[in-house]
Simulated assay, not measured.
Amino acid sequence: MDDTWEIINSLARHLDSHSPLPAGEERWVLQALKLQEECGEVAEAVIGALALNPRKGHSHSWDDVRKEACDVAVSALVLLSRMGGDPRWFFEEHLQALRRRDLPGQ
């Protein structure tokens, strides 16, 4: 996972270098909205995988759902990176807190 954070941080720098918004909270809000958009694409893919939209039918596969879920994860990690500090440390600390809370004894 060493390359993961290098890629995430590079994506964040790339987005920041092309953003017309001033650095800071406005960019964070935009990235949070992007995260929400990606969540909507997961929902759309699930509906398509289950063929629940009669107009579109079976429009997606479960692999499409997986890809969209990856986009959600990447967007969330890019948000952490764009917010500054040490996103890897913050994420790892949060993950450990979840483990202590939800997986006691592990």
Rank of each mutant, 00 (worst) to 15 (best):
M1P: 15
D2H: 02
D3G: 09
I8C: 03
I8S: 06
S10H: 10
L11F: 09
L11K: 12
L11D: 08
A12I: 09
A12V: 04
L15T: 05
L15F: 14
L15R: 15
H18Y: 13
L21V: 01
P22S: 04
A23I: 03
G24V: 05
E25D: 10
E26S: 05
R27L: 06
L30W: 01
L30D: 04
L30Q: 09
Q31N: 02
Q31W: 01
K34A: 11
L35P: 06
Q36S: 11
E37C: 01
E38F: 02
G40N: 13
E41R: 10
V42L: 11
I47C: 12
G48C: 08
G48Y: 07
G48T: 04
L50M: 14
L50G: 10
P54T: 02
K56D: 11
G57Y: 10
W62T: 12
D64K: 08
V65S: 12
R66I: 04
R66P: 00
A69D: 03
C70H: 12
C70V: 10
D71A: 11
D71F: 07
A73Y: 03
V74L: 11
V74P: 02
V74R: 12
S75I: 01
S75T: 14
A76D: 00
V78K: 02
L79S: 13
L79Q: 08
S81V: 03
R82S: 15
R82F: 04
P87R: 06
P87A: 07
W89F: 12
F90P: 01
F90A: 10
F91R: 05
F91M: 07
E92Y: 08
L95N: 15
L95G: 14
A97S: 15
R101A: 13
D102E: 14
D102Q: 04
P104K: 07
P104M: 05
G105M: 09
